Simulated assay, not measured.
Amino acid sequence: MIRTAIPLAACAALALAACAEDPSTVAGTDETDLDNVDTESEREAAAAALEAGDFANLELGAKIVGPQGPEVKTTLSNDAGIFADITSYVACPAEMSTCDPATAPRGTVYTYVHIVYPGEDNDPTTGAGDGADSSDVERATLFRMNRPATGFTGTAGYAKAEALAAIGEKADIVITCDDGALAWTISAGDGGNQWEASEPLTFYWQSTVPPAGPASAYAIDADGIRATGDGPYPGDGQGSANACLG
């Protein structure tokens, strides 16, 4: 599966002997227990998972400036209330100092970036404003698209350092396709740290199709409840490929 686990980073900072004693490290290897597939469901998930990149390794250029500016700030909500803030933007490759789809070269790859704060981020200047509406979110388990990832190139990922900071050593994020859409499943096991209120996670994916504008295309599962909201979404992309659909 696509995993993130703090013991791997810890081994770089601690003596080898100390790492070998870590209960989450498999004896005689440098793998953590998260790297081992023991059940049929885990094997199926591993087979379906996409390779996850690290947002920290991306080199991005200018952002598209739309009617709302270079970023779209909104919420993920349902009839029960607001369950997350989401700040999104779309960037061109690093060598491009301006990002205008009308003048961008043919074949330009656009990076869609989504920064999600379960329970909102308690910052009255962002998202829904006026502080947190659902700051008691204790466990968010999924961020996903609810429409096909038009033009998806096969490249997607998340900010691994943020995942480690938010979730801890059992951080486990798996990216899969679902009817042409992308889903990031976040699991920290039972108990301990979870992805919870005011802990931002950054997700990204790349497309050959630029956004047509914000659309209700994104969702979060928090405390067993699904909430949806807007974010930049590609245009129709007629004839464009979607790596989720082969």
Rank of each mutant, 00 (worst) to 15 (best):
G157P: 03
P101T: 09
E120F: 01
S134D: 05
T155M: 06
N146D: 04
A171L: 01
H114V: 05
K170T: 11
D121V: 04
G119R: 06
V116F: 02
A165Y: 11
V174Y: 00
H114D: 09
G131S: 07
V137N: 04
Y158G: 01
G107I: 13
T125Y: 07
E138K: 10
F143T: 00
T111F: 14
P148Q: 11
T126L: 12
I115L: 13
M96W: 06
A102E: 15
C99Q: 08
H114L: 12
G131C: 08
L164T: 13
Y110W: 15
V113L: 02
P105C: 10
R139I: 02
I173Q: 00
S97F: 03
A161M: 06
S134I: 01
R147Q: 15
A102N: 15
D100N: 15
A132V: 13
A166K: 04
I167Q: 02
M145T: 07
Y117I: 02
V174P: 00
V109C: 04
Y110T: 13
E120A: 07
P118R: 03
E138Q: 14
P148R: 10
V174R: 10
T111D: 13
A165D: 14
A165W: 10
I173V: 14
D133Y: 04
S135N: 13
T126Q: 12
T103K: 13
V109A: 05
Y117L: 03
T108N: 05
T108A: 08
A128I: 10
G127F: 03
T150P: 01
P105H: 11
G151R: 14
G168A: 07
A159L: 01
M145R: 09
A102Q: 15
Y158P: 00
K170L: 13
A102I: 13
E169C: 05
Y112A: 12
G168R: 07
Y112S: 12
A159M: 00
A128E: 09
E120W: 00
T125C: 00
I175E: 00
V113S: 02
V113Y: 02
T141H: 02
T103Q: 11
G107W: 11
G129I: 14
G107Y: 12
T153Y: 10
R139L: 06
G151V: 15
D136W: 14
G157S: 09
F152L: 14
A149N: 08
S97H: 07
K160M: 08
Y117M: 03
D133H: 08
N146K: 02
A159Q: 01
A149M: 11
Y112I: 14
V174L: 07
C99E: 04
T141K: 01
T153I: 14
A102D: 15
D121Q: 05
T150A: 08
D136Q: 14
A159S: 07
G119L: 07
A149G: 10
V137R: 03
D130Y: 11
N146C: 03
R147I: 11
